[in-house]
Every structure is written in structure tokens, then in C-alpha cells.
Design a binder for these strands. Sequence first.
DNA 1: TCTGGGGTCCTAGGACCC
DNA 2: TCTGGGGTCCTAGGACCC
Length: 421
Amino acid sequence: MFALVDCNNFYVSCERAFDPKLEGKPVVVLSNNDGCIVARSEEAKAIGIGMGNPFFQVRDVIDRYDVRVFSSNYTLYGDMSNRVMSILSEFAPEIEIYSIDEAFLDFSHLKSGRMEPLACEIRKRVGQWTGIPVSIGIAKTKTLAKLANRTAKKNPLSGGVFLFDNDEKIKASLAKTETADIWGIGRNLSLRLKKEGIHTALDMVNAEDSKIRRLLGICGLRTVMELRGTPCIKLDDAPAQRKSVCCSRSFGKDVSTLEDLSEAVSLYTADAAERLRHEKLSAGLVTVFLDTGIFRKKCPYYFNSASHEILPPSNSTGELIRYTLPLLKGIFRKDFIYKKAGIIFTELVPAGAEQLGLFDRKSADLAKSCMLSETIDSINRRFGDGSVFYASEGVSKSWAMARERCSPHYTTRWAELPEAG
DNA sequence: TCTGGGGTCCTAGGACCC
DNA sequence: TCTGGGGTCCTAGGACCC
């Protein structure tokens, strides 16, 4: 048995945990660059603000209903997530942290009568210790646990916990669930299903395997099996080593010069390299890309990317900037208005196990650049992000993303600790 | 005027091997 | 006249997730 614990409206709940006055009011959190709505309180959902709506399109509704708006504060959400996950891990022998606000817990050791009481205890503990409300769905496959979780959220009578313990309950839920709301079925596949007369999860479960296989491929068939109660997806408590690290941002203002783009790409390189070091990885390939964006109909569109091998693989910011800036220069074209740039590191290997070449520079150089990066990281950890940085990142950063409504870093900066009145 | 960011996996087709 | 079968690797594009 699996329990899926999912934080309700997670980013909004993080903001509310430190500002109780937000309770009962409509609240939304915006994506980076204050672009789209990425989290909504129940009150905000009720007045018709949709997930992913561009902020500027719903601005009048927001003004009319006095909706409280926050820029995203991922430092806060990441820290709150760690707190929630560490509580959850006390309740199960195995836990898979599936996303910033969700975790699967192994419940297979529990007697059937014990599952609901334990789930209630988890809700209570997480709420008491972090202020974050959670919902819990329990079932014999992960896909069904996801569905049970949805049912718990939608049904106020459930008390935030829903258990699939008999076929009638499952069948009733499947009949009420549109295919697009099933874990693993997105917009495109649900459209494909609709054309074949398959509208609900129950229709899928009743369909021929060969038809599902043809329409949805092997993953879709797996999803259907899971809905029928045959587990196909295991609990993954030790996720495999990651395969890529990416950093990309939209700009807060129009950018068209190579100078501004170079600063941005330097910063993104530094950011991603820091993550590589944090996870003790080195990159063997880097890709840089540029994008004018698709929304400005009047401006000419341009997207391009370029890649380069990193020999030997590295995670040193200084070294990596020496790869990314020439790549940028190679794809940069004048007379475009750029909206976004980014870098991707792939071919990741464990740091310290990089394959050196016969004619590489002396290892002393590598050790030196490694030490420099570590020193930069420890200074920035102690005195705050951006205390020291590479000059190529620029000082004024006029292109930086908009973040006009960010809440304090309540839990990660001494100067921004919440005060009790 | 203003539209996010970071991931993984599958599939089909082409090139190649014997 | 009749032209097989089995495999790998790479890539681009498409699907999904949060």
C-alpha cells in the first residue's frame, strides 16, 4: 500500500504559515519574473483564477477581489519542504520525495485498520509543526494513491484522508475522473482518448489493452494496469543520479546587447555550477540557448543553441564560464529582442572521478580552481547569496527578472526572521 | 506593455554492424 | 524472377510530471 501525502496549495500555504492574516483571503503566488499564476488558495480558485493564467490577464479580477499576490520565494518553499519531508520520514520505513510538495510513503507494513488513523496523525503533526495543511490518499498502486489524494482534496467530508479499500469505492472514483486528471495522462493524450470515445478513467480501465497500447504507448498501458490495481511503478526511495542541471530565466526588461546576455549567461553558469558542486557532480557537456520568446507577434522570432564538450569534465564556475561565453557569442545575432537565455549541463559524472586526458593541464591547476569554487560557496553560504561573484555576471543586473512582491526569507536569513507581535 | 522553470522518459527514423 | 533477420546507437521531437 502507498500513501501519497500532498501539501495543499503549497506555496500559498508557506506564505500563510508566516502571515496568519492571509487566512481566509484569496492568495496567489506568481512564477518567476512575476509572469504566471502558479499557486492559488481555495478562495482564489473559487473566483475563477486558473492555474498558469498570465498575471496581467487576471489583474482586474485580482484588484476587484483584493487578492493578495506574492512573487515566488523558492528559498522559503524549499526550506519548508525539507521540514515537511523530515516529519514524513518518521512515519514510514520508506519514503519517496516525489516533488517539492509531495511524497509517497510505504504503508504496506500496516494492518488495514491502522492506515487511516496513522494518516490522520501525520496530518495533525505536519500541521502542528510546520503550519502546512496536507491531504493523504492511500491505495495499492501509486496511480490509485494519486487519485485517492485528489478525492481527499475535493471531498470536504473526507477530513483530508481518503483510503481506497474496496473495489466499489475505486469504481465510483474512476467513473467521476476525466482522463486528463489521471497521473500520467496529460492534455494531448486525453485528447487522443476522447477521439476514440474514452472519456473517463473507468472507460480506460474497460478498454482493450491493445487499443491502449496503440493510443498511449507502453507508459499508458502501465497507467491503466495501475488503475486496475496491478502495481507497475515501485516506490523509488533512492532516485538515480540526475542527468542534467539547467538554469534559465526570462528577463525583466528587453535585452538585445551581447553585454547584457553575457552577464546573464555568466550568472546562470555560476548558479548551475554551484548546484553541480552541491551534488558533487561535474559536467562533460554544456549547452547555451537564446530565445526571443513566442508571444511578441510583431518582433521577429529567433531561437538558437550551441553545445561544447567540457574536457576534462568540470564544476568550477570560472572554468565553465570560459565555455559558455564563447558559445553565447557564436549564437548571438544583433537586432533581436531577447526574452530568455539559459544553460544546460549534461554528461554528468561524479566529481573527483572525471576522466582526464593525456595532454590535460597539470592537476595542480584543477585543484586550485576547485578550492576557489569551494571558498566562494562557503562565503556565500555564510554571508548570503551573491556576497562574492564573478565580475562577468555584472553589477547592476538591469536585466534581472521582476520580483516585486517577494515575502521575506523567514527561515533562511537572520535579518528576516519573523517577529511575534 | 505584461505569458515560468526544471526535470525525465519514450518513440520513430536513420545510420550502422554482422 | 525471387533480396533476411537481428541488433545497437544516436537524434529530434513529443509526451509527461511538478
